[in-house]
Design a protein around this nucleic acid. Structure first.
Lengths: 320, 320
DNA sequence: TCTGGTAATAGATGATTCTCTATGTAGTGC
DNA sequence: GCACTACATAGAGAATCATCTATTACCAGA
């Protein structure tokens, strides 16, 4: 059997003929002429190298080889129909896989979106990578993921971004701190205290430091801890003060106070970033669409800042 | 996805590329040039409507859609490889089906061939139809079967024949019959006795009657029985005489004697008959070949008359 | 024996495919 | 930045395909 010149079309025609038991009938069903079907069948029989049909009492019935070919054809066409369904699901974003890389702080909030999304699209596999800004930048450079969440995007030369959530950085002090009751505090007043800082690769630290620089200030004693949690607990325990994303604070935080420092909160935003030079998986696109539609239900209104539509538009233009 | 222009060849190329992770490598394996492979893949991706491969660290790896296509392709190609095996077996006569139609008398001998054949080719289904000559002729006209066994073939306009076994018709009488000891008996001497005859459609009867006619003789009293067995038992019981195929007699038959009638035995031969206007199944052809090779082992030498090679030759010329 | 339906063949044509060579482009690794 | 390898594109010729119309051949039933 010469498989080289076997087409799926040929099998479709063959199946139609076997089913209807007649070439003319099959031709009608397929919107072809009878000679076309006749010739296709001839080609198919040649490819197989064996007669496929014989005329019994005016009906065409498959020979032995023909029966087996019919079985094989149906299986094969069925398999590709399944594949087609798979593609449809893939394209609809109902199935598939994508990975998203988050800077540390965003992990406090992204599950609120990913949870409902996963529930709505159980067939989509999501992989979440978490690390500090520097680690995420590496992943971004290597194009490891479909989506990235940064507060300040890296170079947008090969990417598009869309903000979706406010990320205010506030100064926190332990409950009962001397300045906690003041209506207004200046940063300068706090410089004498020890500050707990994230590690150098962290976005939170970077933002805080560049803000300080703008103000012409620099910190005194510092203590470095590579985790927002550790810092929050450290501040509560009286180790010092810190500037943290408000998202890091639990809804109720009786052991901490937010100091009303002038110039704070530092206003930043998280953004979804998508590389333009990497094809975005349908599933990831589906997630962005979902986020755009359901963001308001998933986060507190005061943080809301839905500019994902702009990102989607930017992608559309890139994809076109 | 447009399945119309999907070729098995395309899938083969695709599978080779996915397996090797490189187009150039696949091209070498398939004895093609790299641009050819590149272009084929492009066509395939177009047919699918989705990117299939992406370059990761210098290797081509399938996208999601590509992975699924790879799975589908392998299944489909595997299915057709199986089909190919099936064809091979079919062509080798190792598998398949055929039907053979026997005149009654031949049933005493054909199992000796069919038994060993079935043992050697357990995957071949054989259907045996048995009836008298007239019934077999009807089947022959309707082209119901692959092979027919007649003693005298019908018109050979659309068929070829090959003798394979002598079928002598002898006169039998009960043990102790008055003429049993004579060295020579003429038919005329027997006409006074009652003869047990098969039914009119029978070949045995036809042969006997036409022999009688040649001799210018006609029978007196007759008794008709539609079974060789019944006639044999009837003769033994003294109901009368009969002319029967020697094959009908058991190896030992103490209750019967063969009368040495002048002009008997009537020499006839069984033949395999194959219609020339019906494609002969590989299995049936395999059986004929088997019969040609093993006939001598399966029947008594005195009946042997292997002219099947002529039949096979006749088929070859028709098939070419 | 005519008639109707069905399959096969012939002949034609535009589209598609297959495959090549030659050349361009883009990552990878040093 | 350079060399190397691998993929992409262009262009071209031969082959094959898909499909049609028109005709022929065959078979079964009236």
């Amino acid at each position: 059997m010469n498989i080289r010149h076997l087409t799926f079309r040929l099998l479709q025609v063959y199946v139609a003929v076997v089913r209807s038991g007649s070439m003319s009938e099959a031709a009608r069903l397929l919107h072809l002429t009878q000679p076309t079907v006749s010739q296709q069948l001839k080609r198919l029989a040649e490819a197989v190298g064996e007669p496929l049909l014989e005329s019994r009492h005016g009906r065409l019935v498959p020979t032995e080889a023909g029966s087996e070919l019919y079985r094989a054809s149906r299986e094969v066409l069925g398999r590709f129909a399944d594949f087609d369904d798979y593609l449809t699901a893939l394209r609809g974003g109902e199935r598939g896989r994508f990975s998203i890389a988050l800077v540390n702080t965003a992990q406090y909030v992204l599950p609120r979106l990913l949870g409902p999304f996963s529930q709505a699209h159980p067939e989509v596999d999501v992989t979440v990578h978490i690390g500090n800004r520097r680690q995420m930048l590496t992943r971004f450079e290597r194009q490891d993921d479909d989506l990235y969440v940064f507060s300040h995007p890296p170079s947008l030369a090969h990417a598009v971004a869309g903000r979706f959530l406010r990320n205010p950085l506030v100064a926190v002090a332990p409950h009962g701190h001397a300045l906690a009751d003041r209506e207004r505090v200046t940063m300068r007043e706090l410089l004498g205290e020890r500050f707990l800082l994230r590690e150098p690769g962290s976005a939170t630290r970077m933002l805080f430091e560049s803000w300080l620089q703008e103000q012409g200030l620099s910190l005194g004693a510092t203590l470095q801890m590579a985790s927002n949690e550790a810092i929050r607990v450290g501040v509560a325990a009286g180790l010092g003060l810190a500037v943290l994303s408000e998202h890091v604070l639990p809804p109720e935080h009786p052991d901490l106070v937010i100091l009303p420092v002038a110039g704070l909160p530092i206003e930043s935003h998280w953004q979804f970033i998508v590389r333009r030079d990497r094809r975005l998986s349908h599933a990831a696109l589906g997630f962005l669409r979902f986020a755009e539609g359901h963001l308001a239900e998933c986060v507190e209104p005061r943080f809301l800042c839905n500019e994902i539509d702009g990102l989607l538009a930017g992608l559309g233009e890139a994809g076109a």
